[in-house]
Design a protein around this nucleic acid. Sequence first.
RNA 1: GGAGAGAUGGCUGAGUGGUUUAAGGCACACGCCUGGAAAGCGUGCGUAGCUAAUCCCUACCGGGGGUUCGAAUCCCCCUCUCUCCGCCA
Length: 433
Amino acid sequence: MLDIKLIREKTEFVRQRLATRGAGDETKIDELLKLDEQRRKALAEVESLKSLRNRLSKEIGALMGQKKLAEAEAKKAETKNLGDQIAALDKQASESESARDTLMLQLPNLPHESVAIGKTAEDNPEIRVHGTKTSCDFTPKTHVELCESLKLVDFQRATKLSGSGFLLYTNWGARLERALIQFLLDLHVTQHEYTEVSPPFMVGEQCMVGVGQFPKFKDQYYGVAEGGDANNLGKLYLVPTAETPVANIHREELLKETDLPIRYCAYTPCFRGEAGAAGVGTRGMIRVHQFDKVELIKIVKPEHGYDELEKMVANAEKVLQLLGLHYRVILLCTGDMGFGSAKTYDIEVWAPGQGSYLEVSSCSNCEDFQARRMNLRFKSETGENKFPHILNGSGTALARLFVALIETHQQADGSLHIPEPLQPYLKASRITA
RNA sequence: GGAGAGAUGGCUGAGUGGUUUAAGGCACACGCCUGGAAAGCGUGCGUAGCUAAUCCCUACCGGGGGUUCGAAUCCCCCUCUCUCCGCCA
């Protein structure tokens, strides 16, 4: 959520920054300010009436204390109609306020000044590249072919269980998936100063609002119903990312400045409806309804937000470096960024079988946008209550990492070489048919 | 699922209709004291809106509604927490 004061005081600046996203959000500003003005006007009136009522009520109390009952009754009569006026104005003020807040929740974050202005993924500048595309003297198989020949994933039977877009890992595939999760958590916890947490895989609506998934993108997620009772559908949602539960851990709290920075690392499966997305329903692991991910979350003082973002990207890159994968880091342009983000880096890993790069990490600084939505603050040393910056980054998403890994390390004989850092986790250096 | 208890500021904890403009304590900040510290003493200290303002004023005691001139306090609904019982991995 944006700061309403910023919108009031620097209206043109906000309008221009919103316009860089190219989604037309800047057109909502006039309506927003109108509602804000209505609210403030009603509030000023109702507050002076309340002030009057409070004064009279006190006088009535004093009169009754002195047993001057007749005078008290007279004053009561005088005060009586104030109540209706107050109720009417209160209603006006709260209606304006809730209309204003509904609009506020729909407005995306302002892009940081360092973000390139652009419309689509075509406009995303490449920041750096690590390694080179693998050149092998045979035609690389796709991950689907490898999964079938090495029996890592049973696509067919997964469909029988849950429909398209779900994976059934089998034997070495299941072991590899588990090894990767363990490897990622250990890396971030022991080498990168994150505290491991294991959150619920279902969250309440408030969490979805807190990080910005609701109300705007409600159709993207899975709601669950307990038992056969359709009435409680929507009380809980399957997490689309660990960001949702973990970023909300300190929701509604007032932290001490010395509590910061907070750095969390969590594994969860991620559930996504992928409504309208290309590639759902086709075979393979690139876009599925459920995948595993290890997520990094930071809650930091505003002045450290962008340093911490750079470190977070480096933490995610380390994963790919250790696994011997070629990747590039790109900066998302204003038009391609997520709703709550002020600045986002994507990491794309090379998948030789696909002949393309796959997004395996997205690291964002949401600044105070999410903290405002969840009313998470910290008390500074000077006694001020401030909103911290909240950052999230994948470290990394697994199904696609799995794809890049097996496509990159496949051998001419059809077997799979396991990179050295992963071997202790898999307890194998090679997978063969 | 059944029964009971509860939800008050950063924490704790009083408060059953009118100096509660939320007591007291802890924590925190500053000062006194001290060779220095602890203890002790003094002062300050909730959140948000409004505002040039740390002045006023208004709101906020889990959330929503009601009664009243006036509600933390009385009534109704909801949510959550705890204890016990049942069921259960």
